[in-house]
Design a protein around this nucleic acid. Structure first.
Length: 918
RNA sequence: GGGCGGAUAGCUCAGGUGGUAGAGCGCUGCCCUUACAAGGCAGAGGUCACAGGUUCGAGUCCUGUUCCGCCUACCA
């Protein structure tokens, strides 16, 4: 049998993945009588590409899925993709722009067709990449947020919320991205510290008696000022109360108002009020009944309201112009450096403009209340628990959610308007002709003609009675029976549909078997940056529409950063591409690296070096298996006779099984990974395989050989099963190479067998290993050639436990430490190096060793560390309080240590005297 | 402004209920020993950020300080 010396992942991964899919191993069975374990995937963007965050997220889910599957659960891991409204639309717009086509050149329908084309072209890419990662998803149930079923769920949810008055449409100040041309929710705004300036501007009193100086970071908005506010208690401004000012550059007369909001200690203590362009001013303006003057338009340019001089200018250009103009008038009294947080669009990084527009909102407080309770009561558990506070603090201060987006790609708001009843409030943009009301157009054209000639339209404010919400396109207006209906042009925030994901993907609102069996899902695995965007909203919607939480456990994993702790980004150029890593090191190595580094509550700093280390581990697994195969000649599966090392490795194996299971159950992925790493490499390979070599050579007889073969095979098989969730490909390849029938996926995840834990074997084996290490140490330190056999001597009498163990297992010393023979002696032998062990007085013969300098060095080193330790123990034991208050067993242990240390030191002392004498 | 997390070996990090500080990588020396040089053996390396406190005993619990992250906020 030819097995390659180096594991080659490239040649087998695709083959096994295809096999798993063909055998339908990950297809869930709603009729199974096994206990269910279900998860829904955090759906990646349809046209996205796999990055390290996805790789980590899906590896962790896959570990759980494979573990639970092997552990006897009926597993559903439901996959799918998200339409990612703004992100996808932006990508397609950019693509079109490169072809010289702008969004305005296309009709809504044409533009949507382009996006669908794009989606069809790239939509499968991320799915293939997840498959490449080995993800054991049930692909027969793959969903897309804009599938018909999920879209229907969206419409029904919208309608129900609308009926209950939890959705409303209002003219309100929202975050507007002038580049994307749409409103955003508060969460979609990224606040960043920006170094700007604070401009001090004088506003003269109308009566000519001086002026008030205000401070602002946005001078261009002064063109829309409708008041200046001061704190009512601020003595400096008492004489201005009720006075009027002349707004520079416009000549508009504005009042001085008093408001508690004003912080007298900031700037000059006088605050200019621009109700149309600042969220605070908006509120203050309402409080004082101030007019809202919109001077910045949706395109980020100044409106005609800004005055002839500034109209049409970009808002930032206008800032400069305003400053220049004020300077020329001598009204700019001071400019200071000032850093402050500025909102940026999370999709395109453009500076957000607060604008008053008509938008749709979800009333959040009533939905949040039960969602808070669900976590507080423990029905939902965050892991690590610390995230619950983050969740509470956001939920408790939750604000209404702006859900309308002025883009094309997404779920249309399922509300219609009647052209006959409300045509005056439907404003249509006719290509090249300007704006007309529907009513006006209708005088000249038919309904169908209007729809075909209109590029865009908007719906002016109107009462709830005028809105016709519906789960599907309504036949007629319920008031007039007219059939000239127009649907709201806006689409919903992408996260609106994502919020329904755990149940919309399982067929809701139908009462499906899937929902019955798999909802609530067991676990959600995601990262903290979407706790608000997604996790919280799923909880609210799940409770509202399913009457139950969407999941029990929320495992929040780390963010993957580069080795310096920087977020990976294309612009920083520090991206480690998982696809490249899979190509270079194999998928199993990538997965194992991510899992091994995924400690709770800390970010992952990823480096390629690390990956190389785990690639080596995968190779180690491969070669350990290769060794086992090679030692199998003529073996038929008999059990044979077990020796000490067999009993030892089997005992250790039971403990490892237990540890791995507990770690996985507690989402301590990294602990599970490192337990397996240490066991396979440093126990199974370093000790057991080494010890098995002479036996396989037949040196201990046939019975022992068969026992060892059984044990090698059994232990390796168990390790492979334990490792399978972490490194599915190599384990499957080896498992099948071992002549097993069927996939390792279908194997039972190992259970610990307490009857195999042999405490005596654990003790004796660890004693022997100490002896071996001691002998090796003497050899190296005394520069004895590795090939030269050594005699070891045991001081004591026949019948001593450790002497008996040594005699029984002498072969092991010969094999692992090149010991030639073991000789019992009754007094201290010379020349010989003592082994400083816990048990037994053992010596390595130094006959013929000329240079004792190395031996002296070894003893010096050992003595120094023992003395240090002894000092510590002495100090403790000389403390009366310790003797009186510490638990008895702790005191006893310390006393034992003292004796042990003293004995060892004495031994060294004796040896050093001997060396000096020579 | 509020909140959270971090500071442990040269580097990256583990260290559930307080009781002898660990891993990987890197480093040093010796080994191509027929599973694996992507390897083996042996080793060096730590005042656990700082200052107090609780305790017989603190990397671990409490308080404060410094320095880094991150989240959040209507600081004009």
């Amino acid at each position: 049998m030819e097995i390659k010396k180096v594991y080659d992942p490239g040649s087998i991964e695709e083959r096994w993945y295809r096999y798993w899919i063909e055998k339908r191993l990950f297809v869930a069975d709603p009729c199974s009588d096994k206990p269910p374990f279900s998860m829904v995937i955090p759906p990646p963007n349809v046209t996205g590409s796999l990055h390290m965050g996805h790789a980590l997220n899906n590896t962790l889910q896959d570990v759980l899925v494979r573990y639970k599957k092997m552990d006897g659960f009926n597993v559903l891991w439901l996959p799918g993709t998200d339409h990612a409204g703004i992100a996808t639309q932006n990508v397609v717009e950019r693509m079109l722009r490169e072809k010289g086509i702008s969004r305005d050149d296309l009709s809504r329908e044409e533009f949507l067709q382009e996006i669908w084309k794009w989606k069809d072209l790239y939509g499968k890419r991320i799915i293939h990449q997840l498959q490449r990662l080995g993800a054991g998803c049930d692909w027969t149930r793959e969903r897309f947020t804009m599938d018909e079923g999920l879209s229907r769920a969206v419409r029904i949810v919208f309608n129900r919320l609308f009926e209950e008055d939890l959705i409303y449409r209002e003219r309100y100040m929202v975050n507007w991205c002038p580049r994307c041309g749409t409103a955003l929710s508060d969460l979609e705004v990224e606040h960043r510290e920006v170094r700007g300036r604070l401009y001090y501007i004088d506003y003269p009193l109308k009566d000519g008696n001086g002026s008030i100086t205000i401070a602002t970071t946005r001078p261009e908005t002064m063109l829309g000022d409708t008041a200046v506010a001061v704190h009512p208690e601020d003595e400096r401004y008492r004489r201005f109360h009720g006075k009027e000012l002349i707004l520079p550059l416009t000549g508009r007369v504005i009042p001085v108002v008093t408001d508690d909001y004003v912080d007298a200690s900031f700037g000059t203590g006088a605050l200019k009020i621009t109700p149309a362009h600042d969220p605070n001013d908006f509120v203050i303006g309402k409080r004082h009944g101030l007019p809202q003057i919109t001077v910045i338009g949706k395109d980020g340019r100044m409106t005609p309201e800004a005055g002839e001089r500034f109209a049409g200018l970009d808002r930032f250009r206008c800032r400069e112009e305003v400053v220049e103009a004020l300077k020329a008038l001598g009204l700019l009294s001071k400019v200071e450096e000032h850093t402050h947080a500025v909102g940026h669009c999370y999709r395109c990084d453009t500076v957000i403009e607060p604008l008053i527009t008509l938008q749709w909102f979800v009333k959040m407080a009533p939905l949040a209340e039960p969602a808070i309770e669900a976590v507080r009561s423990g029905r939902i558990r965050f892991i690590p628990k610390g995230w619950e506070n983050t969740y509470f603090s956001w939920m408790e201060g939750i604000r209404d959610w702006c859900i309308s987006r002025q883009i094309y790609w997404g779920h249309r708001i399922p509300v219609w308007y009647c052209g006959h009843c409300d045509g005056d409030r439907i404003i249509m943009d006719v290509k090249g002709e300007g704006e007309f009301t529907y009513s006006d157009l209708r005088k000249r054209f038919s309904h169908e003609e209007i729809l075909s000639m209109v590029k865009d339209y908007r719906i002016e404010e109107m009462g709830r009675d005028s809105m016709i919400p519906s789960e599907s396109a309504p036949e007629a207006c319920p008031r007039c029976g007219g059939k000239e209906l127009v649907q709201d042009p806006d689409v919903l925030d992408t996260w609106f549909s994502s919020a329904l994901w755990p149940f919309s993907t399982m067929g809701w609102p139908e009462k499906t078997k899937e929902l019955e069996v798999f909802y609530p899902t067991s676990t959600l695995v995601t990262s903290f940056d979407i706790i608000f965007f997604w996790v919280a909203r799923m909880i609210m919607m799940g409770l509202k529409f399913m009457g139950d939480v969407p999941f029990r456990d929320v495992y929040i994993h780390a963010l993957v950063r580069d080795i310096h702790g920087q977020k990976m980004s294309k612009s920083r150029g520090n991206v480690i591409d998982p696809l490249v890593m899979m190509e270079r090191y194999g998928t199993d190595a990538l997965r194992f690296t991510l899992v091994a580094l995924a400690a709770q509550g800390r970010d992952i700093r990823l480096s390629e070096e690390r990956m190389e280390g785990y690639r080596n581990f995968v190779n180690k697994v491969w070669n350990a298996s290769r060794f086992v195969f090679m030692g199998l000649d003529g073996y038929r599966g008999e059990e044979g006779e077990m020796g000490l090392m067999e009993r030892w490795i089997l005992s250790r194996l039971q403990k490892v099984i237990e540890e791995v299971r507990t770690s996985l159950d507690e989402y301590r992925f990294n602990d599970a990974a490192s337990t397996l790493y240490q066991f396979l490499w440093h126990e199974f390979c370093d000790w057991y395989i080494e010890a098995s070599k002479p036996i396989l050579r037949g040196e201990m007889g046939e019975e022992r050989k068969r026992g060892t073969q059984w044990c090698l095979l059994h232990t390796l098989g168990t390790i492979l099963k334990l490792l399978h969730p972490f490194m599915p490909f190599v384990t499957e390849e080896i498992w099948n190479g071992m002549g097993n029938e069927g996939s390792i996926v279908l194997e039972r995840y190992p259970l610990p067998d307490p009857s195999l834990v042999d405490e005596e074997a654990l003790e004796e084996a660890s004693f022997l290993m100490e002896v071996v290490k001691g002998v090796r140490n003497v050899r190296v330190e005394a520069s004895i050639p590795p090939t030269r056999p050594l005699e070891i001597l045991y001081m004591g009498k026949e019948g001593d436990r450790w002497l008996e163990v040594l005699k029984r297992e002498e072969w092991l010393l010969k094999a692992l430490a090149r010991v030639s023979c073991l000789t019992p002696v009754d007094k201290r032998p010379f020349p010989a190096a003592p082994l400083i062990l816990k048990e037994g007085d053992l010596f390595v013969s130094l006959k013929g060793v000329i240079d004792l300098e190395g031996e002296r060095r070894r003893l010096e080193k050992k003595k120094a560390s023992l003395l240090e330790e002894l000092a510590l123990v002495e100090r403790r034991l000389s403390n009366k309080d310790f003797l009186n208050r510490a638990p008895r067993e702790v005191v006893e242990r310390e006393k034992g240590r003292r004796e042990d240390l003293s004995r060892k030191i004495a031994k060294i002392q004796e040896q050093m005297e001997w060396i000096r004498a020579v």
